[in-house]
Design a protein around this nucleic acid. Structure first.
Lengths: 91, 91
DNA sequence: CAGTCACCAGATCGGCCTTGTTCATACGGT
DNA sequence: ACCGTATGAACAAGGCCGATCTGGTGACTG
């Protein structure tokens, strides 16, 4: 499913009274809001859907897949997602 | 960040012309659309945000952390999320 | 149509995942 | 605005899944 398909689905869910442009604005707004929430609190908790959260990963040893030379992968912050039981049942 | 806070943020992003109820409907619609996309295609690809996808995990051996007894963890479908580079930079 | 974004490969080690109960908290209806 | 309900987080230990590196190609976006 693409972003365009998502907008189409949002449009359907919003009902006849809304335009496609409104559905697109809604999609972008929600995604940006999640992004800002992550940036601000480091965690976005959505009951009935799932939780986005930032987990810290320490530095470790890795490889350059092209040259196969060993290299040090620095510590990074990883954005992860835990689906709620509700979302899991919807698969 | 809670769902209520997310709705508040969406409301701000949608602008003055929209009501809070509209922001709430928008949030729910987008989340439901993602859920339906996952159910339908097993994958929701959102450029500039990330990708939700269902990964099949085969059965494996594990432990019951309560009783420490070895147990067989059955194969399940797990909903995972891979953040795009854009989202990663926004942390 | 042009530019940007994500996926692919192989190898390795670190961190997640499992169960079950209790408790806290968030949701949404009245 | 408040309260009841229901959802999810934490915690234990150990094995196994997957995230990560680079660079080019392909698909999608606007």
């Amino acid at each position: 499913m693409n972003k365009a398909d998502l907008v189409t689905e949002v449009h359907r869910l919003l009902g006849e009274g809304s335009s496609r442009a409104a559905a697109e604005r809604a999609s972008n707004s929600v995604l940006r809001a999640i992004k800002r929430g992550l940036k601000k609190d480091g965690e976005v908790h959505l009951v009935g859907f799932g939780t986005f959260f930032i987990s810290q990963r320490s530095a470790r040893n890795g490889y350059n897949p092209h040259t196969r030379q060993p290299m040090r992968i620095p510590a990074i912050k990883l954005i992860r997602f835990k689906a709620s039981s509700n979302l899991r049942a919807a698969r």
